[in-house]
Amino acid sequence: MQAADIPTLPRGVRLHHDKVRDTWVLLAPERAITLDAVGHAILNEVDGTRSFGEITGALAERYSAPVDEIRKDSSGFLDALRSRRFLDVSQ
């Protein structure tokens, strides 16, 4: 994922808090992914308007972590979601 890429959740895909299991999940038609705290933090920043660079910068600032580390981890996570069609990316 490049810094200028703008990740967005496609139509029908949404974050949802599963109250029974007390965990966050990413829901899509006939599919779901249980999210850990890191995955939820990343996807919580995906709003369809901010670039990947802006998202990773905000995460690095919020968690006082090196931006390169955040970029590497976030890129791998979002690329995996993209390959499974849970995420769209525009430029």
Rank of each mutant, 00 (worst) to 15 (best):
L9P: 08
V25H: 09
S83E: 15
S90N: 09
P7F: 00
L59I: 07
I42R: 02
R50M: 01
T23W: 10
E69K: 13
Y63G: 06
R62D: 08
M1T: 07
A28H: 06
A3H: 12
G57M: 02
E61A: 13
D79V: 08
K72I: 12
S83G: 15
L35H: 02
G57T: 02
I33Y: 10
R31F: 13
R50A: 07
S64K: 11
A37E: 15
H17M: 12
I33C: 07
L35M: 04
N44H: 13
A3T: 10
A3S: 11
I42T: 03
R62H: 10
F86Q: 07
M1L: 11
E61R: 14
V20R: 13
A60K: 01
Q91A: 15
Y63T: 09
V25P: 01
R71H: 11
E69F: 10
L9K: 07
P66S: 02
I33L: 15
G39N: 07
V38I: 14
I70H: 01
S64N: 14
S74A: 15
T8G: 13
I55M: 03
G76W: 08
E45H: 09
E54L: 05
D79H: 11
I33N: 07
H40L: 07
L43A: 01
G39S: 06
V67D: 00
A60I: 01
L78A: 06
D5F: 05
N44S: 11
L81S: 02
I6E: 01
R85W: 15
V38Y: 13
S51I: 01
V89W: 03
H16K: 08
F86C: 09
F52M: 13
Q91S: 15
F52R: 01
G53M: 00
